[in-house]
Amino acid sequence: MNKNLLLIMTLSSILSFFSCKQKPQKSNEEIEIDKAFEEWNNRKIYKVLTSEIIDSVSDDILEQTIFDNIYEIIGNDYKNELANVEKLSKGQQSFWSTWIIEGEVNNGGFNQFYFNSSGQYWKMAESGFKVIGAEKYADLTQRANKIYEENKERLAEFDDGTLESFSESYKDNPLNKLDDEFYDLGDIESIRELRIKYIRENKKEFITKKNSS
């Protein structure tokens, strides 16, 4: 064998050995995060839900189970998403719309909710909060909807598809003052607990297939 080639192979082996030896170990927190992500990624998604399935699902994953099932029903037909959601039961509509607005506001405030396609659920979310018994959130969303209606045309001027315009839309935006109220309500009224309670007490609203028995 060529001596130079042998030397290169030897050096490569040594470097490979030390790179493996020096590879940092993951912290317990990182391991837990990886485990949680893997579990979520491999979660069971039900195309149909029966009373038995809902009863068997723990509260920890009940909301995700309902969300996944609704998504299976409406699919990724984003153009007709609102129309497809409106075909669902009142309970499913209430769950879906309150889940959407909660996620958007927690991520980027009411402005983001209305700015994105999620804004199409502005009326449904208000009534949805009432359905699940989240009266304080319903009142706050009603106020936000009123402000949105009053400023709809001005905010539409920023909707050109650019990140710069989206950032500009936050300046002097009257919706901003409601964001902290939304966040603070979490200490008084838990949307998650109310949604779970509603699902448990109104299973028929979420059943998409009758039990086999």
Rank of each mutant, 00 (worst) to 15 (best):
Y170C: 03
G91M: 02
Q112S: 04
K146L: 12
D68V: 01
L7D: 05
G103C: 04
I45E: 14
C20V: 13
T50N: 06
Y148H: 11
K177E: 15
E193H: 10
E164K: 09
I100R: 09
T141H: 10
Y71V: 10
C20M: 14
A138N: 06
K210T: 11
G161V: 10
A134H: 02
W99I: 07
G103S: 11
Y121H: 06
Y114V: 05
E63D: 08
P174Y: 06
G91P: 02
S118I: 02
P24H: 04
Q64F: 14
T65Q: 01
D172L: 10
S51R: 09
E201C: 05
E30F: 01
V57I: 14
T98L: 01
D139S: 14
E193G: 12
V105D: 04
R195N: 10
N111T: 14
R143C: 04
L49N: 01
F166A: 08
E193R: 12
S167P: 00
F110A: 06
Y121A: 03
K87P: 03
E126P: 01
E86V: 05
G103I: 01
R43F: 00
K136S: 08
I132K: 07
E38R: 14
N173P: 03
K123N: 11
S58D: 09
Q92I: 03
F95R: 10
K130R: 15
G109Y: 09
G133L: 05
Y78I: 11
E102M: 07
A125W: 02
Y198E: 06
E153G: 00
Q64T: 12
L82R: 13
D159R: 10
E38K: 15
E205A: 07
E193W: 05
I8D: 06
K90Q: 12
A134I: 04
W40A: 15
K47M: 09
F67H: 15
N151Q: 11
E168I: 04
S94F: 02
N107E: 04
E168M: 13
T162K: 05
A144R: 07
A138S: 14
F110I: 03
I61M: 10
F158I: 03
F182V: 07
